[in-house]
Nucleic acid binder design. Structure first.
Length: 434
RNA sequence: GCCCGGGUGGUGUAGUGGCCCAUCAUACGACCCUGUCACGGUCGUGACGCGGGUUCAAAUCCCGCCUCGGGCGCCA
């Protein structure tokens, strides 16, 4: 297909071969128009019945929508055509005929519900808005990688099959590994710490994480993409600064390179890059502010988790990205370090978007004895984590890091109603295919 | 895990006991139309998730199942 020209590059004055999908057919009688679509856009192909070969006309008008065709012909300037140029075909080859009665309408004239769209994802992504989400997703990953590189972090890939049960917090998917019990990894947390303790010092990873929670909400997935960072000789403040810079880089990349996509999603007007630094609220200030908003039946007290309703109300009140810092040590996992001056307070932080939690992070406990104490305090068996804790006996620098819920970043950035829209083939409680 | 609400042609919908052999749009098929750009026009095909029950009468009420969405919890 060396001689294929993209529709966007089909310039007047030459003969080209374009290939793509039949977007629409408009038969006006003596003249008919076929709109051909490819990844770069659309072009109109003209069929004048009186003046053209009967076989050619028959092929052209016999096409079904979404069939894949290759069209060779002269490109002419034509002010009456949608893009100002038009192809008069010499030959039309049907590469793949589409069945009629499509399961959804790629022109977007008729809506389709999310399950219908996910069952027919290929057709769904022929819609402009569908395509836009994944072009932007690609841009976010590109921008994030570049920003990590500027922060001297090395990209790593860690195993998704793990032996130890849990590091806390969530249900895991059990699997059988050559007859042994194993699990799908809930997070690269422990591995990235082991990597940060090496000469790499700063590492990042974008990869899948698996959570076996049977939740059914528009903001949870059972397989999600985690954007992880871990840096040696970083404290919680350093980690938050790097976190801000990565989030802002993602927004900047999209602002710079995805204008058409934002327009297709109808959010080009309001799209703004968040300003740094993000406000920081301590956990204590957070619960006080939520209580003051008066949205909860019961006032929050120290040690409570933040209920969704309070989180939403506070998000609306703050109106932008913000950090919640200084969480009670008891609600954070064993690997999060406590403050030296107050062991009831942890260095853990969350980055919040007004709609939901986006990131959790913190400084890590790098002192071997404290780490073992922490495991025991949370009822975990230090023996089971020996593969992890042993590195802490051989020179583990102070370090800190965080993880962004990748789909949540996309969902909040693009104002998507449902997180499944941000994943090509989402895994939720019901859906295992495609 | 607890709770709530849905499922009507291919798609998206209207329809809360008789006015429904079911509305509208789009798609699909046939015909008319030489500049459409959500082309237009005429005609046509096509559906009440599955099973049971109540009733003279069920898309509509009840029960079970399947299935989808949402709220909470937990989490990112």
């Amino acid at each position: 297909m060396d001689d294929r020209t993209y529709t966007a590059d089909a310039a007047p004055g030459g003969t080209v071969t374009v290939a793509g999908w039949v977007h629409e057919i408009r038969d006006l009688g003596g003249i008919a128009f076929v709109i051909l679509r490819d990844t770069t856009g659309r072009i109109q192909v003209k069929f004048e019945k009186e003046e053209m070969d009967d076989d050619l006309v028959e092929t052209g008008l016999g096409l079904s929508r979404e069939s894949v065709v290759s069209v060779t012909g002269d490109v002419e300037e034509e002010p009456r055509a949608p893009t100002g140029v038009e192809i008069t075909p010499e030959s039309v080859e049907v590469l793949s005929a589409a069945d009629t009665e499509l399961p959804l309408d790629p022109t977007g004239k008729v809506d389709a519900e999310l399950p219908t769209r996910l069952d027919n994802r290929t057709l769904d992504l022929r819609r402009e808005a569908g395509q836009a989400i994944f072009s932007i997703r690609g841009e976010i990953l590109r921008a994030v990688r570049e920003a990590f590189r500027e922060a001297n972090a090395t990209e790593i890939n860690t195993s998704k099959i793990v032996a130890t049960g849990t590091e806390g917090g969530t249900e895991l998917f059990p699997i059988t590994y050559f007859g042994r019990e194993a699990f799908m990894n809930q997070s690269p947390q422990l591995f990235k710490q082991l990597a940060a303790g090496s000469n790499l010092e700063r590492v990042f990873e974008t990869g899948p994480i698996f959570r076996a929670e049977e939740h059914n909400t528009p903001r949870h997935l059972n397989e999600a993409t985690s954007i992880d960072f871990e840096g040696a000789f970083c404290d919680d403040d350093d980690a938050m600064e790097i976190c801000e810079s990565i989030v802002v880089a993602a927004y900047e990349g999209v602002a710079e390179n995805c204008a058409d996509e934002l327009e297709a999603l109808g959010i080009d007007e309001e799209f703004t890059v968040p300003e740094r630094p993000f406000p920081r609220l301590s956990y204590e200030e957070t619960i006080e502010r939520i209580n003051a908003l008066g949205v909860l039946d019961d006032q929050l007290v120290w040690g409570d988790d933040l209920p969704t309703e309070g989180e939403t109300a506070l998000g609306a009140d703050v109106g932008r990205h913000y950090f919640i810092t200084d969480w009670p040590a008891e609600v954070k996992p064993f690997y999060i370090m406590d403050h030296d001056d107050d062991e009831a307070l942890s260095t853990g932080f969350d980055l919040m978007h007004p709609r939901m939690e986006l990131v959790s992070g913190g400084q890590r406990e790098h002192r071997y004895e404290k780490l073992i104490e922490g495991l025991e305090a949370q009822g975990l068996d230090p023996e089971a984590f020996e593969y992890y804790t042993r590195a802490f006996r051989y020179g583990m620098p102070p370090h800190a890091g965080w993880a962004i819920g990748g789909e949540r970043l996309i969902m909040t950035m693009l104002e998507l109603d449902n997180i499944r829209e941000a994943v090509l083939f989402p895994r939720d409680r019901q859906r295992l295919s495609p």
